[in-house]
Design a protein around this nucleic acid. Structure first.
Lengths: 132, 132
DNA sequence: GCTTGACCTTGTAGTGGCTACAAGGTGCAT
DNA sequence: ATGCACCTTGTAGCCACTACAAGGTCAAGC
């Protein structure tokens, strides 16, 4: 199948598929007589795998490693596990950082009484209110 | 004061300060005889403002607008307020998306029993487990 | 006076993970 | 034959920095 069809099936845009090929994360498929990329189901499966991993927030280097590991059937999955745990940890840190942001933004907005800029508690907070 | 000192005082790295100047978000300070940037307290205050806004996750275009608004004392702060609310909204969406990620990662990791790759529930999940 | 080292200057390129665009070729229906 | 959707390549842009190279400046110590 051509790139557009595999794009539709996997939810990975054609431009992104070509990008993955350039980056060496997806092996280059054969070409038709007219030089179109000609994908089979294996490539589609790989792309789905990549998309799922990306949707879960794994970095491209992580995805690369997960793909490599996924081909070594008899190996222990301890590495996969630790990669996933490390990533989960990162996600949790990111959530915590965003929650701090959210809370401060909320407080800031709540304290603003919507008069003029010179009274504005939001501008105040940004300018000097907390910290040295 | 020179760039290094203002960097220490504001928590914005020297390279970043120069970058802000190039981008026009910070006005270029006068220079000493030896061509060093020579900052006063106003520039330091502006940099602190920028850093706080950035720490709260505001984008550079947002910061630019907040800086402009902060100079118009008698204007209503409704715009500031709506900018902050829109940003809070974005932060909340991001948190929600990350929580979805976190939950799925947790489930994936919990289901893995650490045998071999061919049994690995993490690899399975990525390869095909949910969705068409 | 000379060296050392911390600081400053400029400009350019790299990060991640795509995305957009230009300029052209192909395939199929009308 | 004409239109249109699709494909090809290559290059540049996004965000907000960050790193690095190659050199200039200044104060302290010897």
């Amino acid at each position: 199948m051509r790139i557009g069809e595999v794009a539709r099936k996997t939810g990975v845009k054609a431009e992104t598929i070509r990008f993955y090929e350039r980056e060496g994360i997806l092996t280059a498929p054969p070409r038709t007589r007219s030089n179109y990329r000609d994908y089979g189901p294996d490539e589609a499966a790989t792309l789905t795998f990549i998309r799922r991993a990306r949707d879960l927030g794994f970095s491209m280097p992580d995805v690369r490693e997960l793909l490599e590991l996924s081909n070594e059937d008899d190996r222990s999955c301890a590495e996969v596990d630790s990669l996933a745990r490390a990533h989960l940890d990162q996600v949790e840190r990111k959530i915590a950082a965003l929650q701090v942001m959210r809370d401060e933004l909320s407080r800031m907005i709540a304290s603003c009484e919507q008069y003029t800029i010179s009274d504005c508690r939001i501008i105040d907070t940004l300018a000097a209110s907390h910290g040295p």
